[in-house]
Design a protein around this nucleic acid. Sequence first.
DNA 1: ATAGTTTTACTGAACGATCGGTAAGTAGCG
DNA 2: CGCTACTTACCGATCGTTCAGTAAAACTAT
Lengths: 211, 211
Amino acid sequence: MKQAASADVAGARGGNGRNGRAAYDLSAVLDIAVGAFNDYGYDATSMGLLAERLGTSKSAVYYHVSGKEDLLRLALERALGGLEGILTLPGAIEGAAEDRLRFVLRGAVAVLVDDLPYVTLLLRLRGNTEIERSALARRRAFDHEVSQLVDRARADGSLRTDVDSGTITRLLFGMINSIVEWYKPGGTLTPAQLADHVISVAFDGLHRPTA
Amino acid sequence: MKQAASADVAGARGGNGRNGRAAYDLSAVLDIAVGAFNDYGYDATSMGLLAERLGTSKSAVYYHVSGKEDLLRLALERALGGLEGILTLPGAIEGAAEDRLRFVLRGAVAVLVDDLPYVTLLLRLRGNTEIERSALARRRAFDHEVSQLVDRARADGSLRTDVDSGTITRLLFGMINSIVEWYKPGGTLTPAQLADHVISVAFDGLHRPTA
DNA sequence: ATAGTTTTACTGAACGATCGGTAAGTAGCG
DNA sequence: CGCTACTTACCGATCGTTCAGTAAAACTAT
């Protein structure tokens, strides 16, 4: 009874249409790994615990991934891919700087909500290994592109100039990134409302509208 | 040569005025421990690494503290004590709700900058152990008191009512707490300026002042 | 002044537990 | 049979922690 039955574990398994036994697919393993990493922290999550959550053995996990760091790498790739994808969309490239900034911020909230556990993992990195440092570098590159949008919006006269654009960008992302620490999908606050509130508070502040 | 000389380690030592040898004082050990916890994460920081940073042996650390968790407990106590102290000051108790809110937010920035590594550690907790869960509960209690101030300011008509106060409080703290991830004391941005910018952006938003 | 005692503050070696990862064998399917 | 998807058993390394012994300073008695 110390081990769950080897089949029928919460839909994590799916046939692969090929020879051999029914298998976990990689994305199911990844989902559970990312969940555990966020619950306990990457370092504090053992491969044994992952196996337990999957209802299988430790070494079975190694059949699907080459190791613990591989799980981290795959998860971070998904989060970074989502964020970087925003910057390639037309709304991020065309139009006035403030509109492009609003589009990117709204997109960041959307990716964050859509891939919540994956982005959460990304935002908690410390940079201990090469994989983590590489992910942090890509994240900084994304932040830098947004910072340039803030600069352009300021040059257009859209934004206040009494606070430097680096501070503005950091406070903006501080606000947006904090969403991973408290937003629960499926609650009364829909992702679209959340994005509206964030953009509105960011641009207009806490005071009641003067209009 | 594998071990540093037993004295003169970077001013971490100080006499204690009592019998026996010159010792590290607890606060020096704690400072180095908190720095390492923030660099690598609590779980990824080994007692061996702490000893190395202190220029002493692993077991020497156990003379000063009862264990790794004890270091965490002492560090979190300092961070939480600072934050909770704000709420006991006159500026947080007397006056209009919005002024009290501004005072508390400004105080939170001040504590955060003053005890930067300690608050950083607090903000990165995952709640794996009883000590961490207890610290998280105290942090939530602090947040809750600020949330009540937001409620009162809204009731006074000072703040916008199209976003609920829970979301406002979370976005506020998201912005403020992010400071630990990028603010470097001793730079061109002084703590007082930082607090001004944070309060100003939070209440008035990113747009240029209409006045 | 100095020898002896006490207390403090360590050192170095080792402990059991747990870590990430591997080797070898096998059950279930086409 | 051939291939997939595991299983059990185990490895060396590292983890937090403990323990017996000791060097160095302060205190005390002479």
